[in-house]
Amino acid sequence: MTLELQAFLLVWGTLVGLDLVSVPQMMIARPIVAGSVAGAILGDLATGLQLGVLFELFQYDVMPMGAVRYPEYGPATVAAVSTAHAAAGTLGLGLGALVGLVTGMLGGMSMSVVRRATARAVQAVAGRLEAGDAHLLVRLHVTAIARDALRAAAVTTAGLGLAQVVRVYFAGTLPLRGVTLLGVAAVAAAIAAATAGTLRVVGRGANLGWFVAGIAGGTVLAWLR
């Protein structure tokens, strides 16, 4: 993979990381978007869509409410697509998932670090904020956004670096059965995460019936195809 492509992926991953919480929350941070665009950048849309769907399922396990700490799957999906690129079909799924899940965990931890840093910055100027200094308020806000952009860039860089290591040192050494097992594990975990996460939101009330009806309808449609 050329340095130019890596740079494009880094820019995309940074935008995706910014979108998750800071600006503008238009959901390019959703794995299905982040992954497919990363795939398009690499000229490998099929892999992008596949990893996008995989991590979108993991995303259903997450409810981004308040101060809850959660994994960041946007830049993670970009790194996963970079890992899986050039591995044919399902072969890239497992290794991509491995890199993506580790990057997602890093992303979640990095958000905590940035939020604490912003809290310290707010505390440092609390007196002037209480005096109603509007310029300071805006500067504080813009600086915090820049901090989050740096965080997103760092997470994407780490993910792409990990992807490079896995591609170079591990991809060719795994036996076929091992690669298949990794792929099976990735898809099974994603399905489990999405099902359990959705069930937690659906609960045991009337919506459970709608969920079962959806599964039945989707199963029939999948079978008919």
Binding site: V53, L54, E56, T198, A206, G214, I215, A216
Partner: peptide, 18 residues
């Protein structure tokens, strides 16, 4: 209900796809 129905339908289709 809409979320339960749509995500319910998406799960088997996504499984088949992956």
């Amino acid at each position: 209900p809409a979320m339960a129905l749509v995500v319910g339908a998406a799960l088997p289709l996504s499984t088949g796809y992956l």
